[in-house]
């Protein structure tokens, strides 16, 4: 045992759908220094205890995106998650395959669903034929324009965000954090000629299904912050197309709603989002809630200082150059 090594108990998900009736968890204990990553622990198991354990891995330096797994329920790259803090917090390390992608065997998942969503956002630069690239010279792009990509060029397509996302889990029409961050990368690219089409299309293809839960941003090993880029896409989509979808109507409606009384009129917000017809569909649910919370039926009284709220709105609208 190397100096400073600790005992690392692992519980590893094992499942070969062709042979096993159900998944099981195999326990192994290896001795490692605390800073050593979980990937090294798994490779040690493979080399010294059980060569049948299978997983994806390659670069071991957080750049190839192969080894994303669930480590004590968190979606992480195995190669850059040290064993020490996991043992400190949980006393053991439970290693499971990523979520939201079917298990092929043990820790290896079928990444088909992830790549399908990536393909859906048209991940190809589409230059504008009206503005051809310069001949024999690179496009000119200021450092500020490069800054607009934020951290999206760092994405290594590891799918940790896809694994962590509750909207992906609940709705196959949601493209997921990685695909949307990738879309952002194309939308802000001055060389792409289809920015507006991309924004219009995504409004009806899942953009508004993001929950803003930021679980993707927690999971991302490269600080791409997909949830924040999705927020940017929403703002850009409204700027391009206006509030045409339920999601954008809700966002814009919320803002306008508060202006009226300086406080939220919840019943009115439902009408702003769904229209009168949509509201009727929610009537049953509404009645159940109104019975318990009758105050929701009353139009809220304007707050003290409502006039000032209105002035702030006006100033902000002016700053934007119009309503």
């Amino acid at each position: 045992m190397a100096a400073g090594a600790i005992s690392v108990p692992l519980e590893v998900y094992r499942f070969d759908p062709a042979h096993d009736p159900a998944p099981r968890y195999d326990r192994y204990t290896v001795e490692l220094e605390p800073h050593v990553p979980v990937l090294s622990a798994l490779l040690k198991v493979r080399a010294e205890i059980d060569p049948t354990l299978t997983l994806r891995y390659s670069c071991r330096s957080a750049i190839c995106g192969s080894c994303a797994l669930q480590i004590n329920s968190k979606s992480r790259l195995a190669c850059e998650t040290p064993v020490g803090p996991e043992i400190e917090r949980h006393g053991r390390i439970v290693v499971e395959p990523m979520r939201n992608q079917p298990v092929l065997r043990d820790l290896v998942v079928d990444q088909g669903p992830f790549w399908h969503q990536y393909d859906r956002i048209d991940p190809h630069l589409r230059p504008d034929p009206a503005h051809p690239m310069p001949v024999d010279a690179p496009t000119s792009m200021s450092p500020e324009q490069v800054e607009r990509f934020k951290e999206t060029p760092r994405c290594i397509a590891c799918a940790a965000c896809f694994s962590a996302c509750p909207a992906v889990e609940a709705d196959p029409t949601f493209p997921g954090p990685m695909a949307l961050a990738k879309l952002y990368r194309f939308v802000v690219d001055p060389r792409d000629g289809t920015t507006q089409d991309r924004l219009v299309r995504i409004q009806t293809e899942g953009l508004w299904l993001c929950l803003r839960c930021h679980l993707c941003t927690e999971a991302c090993p490269k600080d791409v912050r997909p949830s924040e880029r999705i927020r940017d896409l929403k703002e850009m989509a409204i700027a391009v197309q206006g509030a045409t979808e339920r999601g954008s109507r809700h966002a814009v409606g919320f803002k306008e709603n508060i202006r009226v009384a300086g406080t939220l009129n919840e019943t009115r917000l439902v009408r702003q989002t769904d229209g009168v017809v949509g509201m009727v569909g929610q009537l049953g649910q509404g009645l159940r809630i109104w019975r318990k919370k009758p105050e929701l039926l009353h139009r809220p009284k304007p707050i003290q200082g409502q006039a000032e709220v209105d002035q702030i709105y006006e100033a902000l609208d002016d700053a934007k150059g119009g309503p």
Binding site: T139, M141, S142
Partner: peptide, 19 residues
């Protein structure tokens, strides 16, 4: 390098917009 830039590579840039 120019071709890869036109394919969409996001290179670092100098203040004048060059590579």
């Amino acid at each position: 390098v120019v071709e890869m830039e036109h394919f969409g590579t996001i290179f670092s840039r100098g203040p004048d917009g060059s590579l």
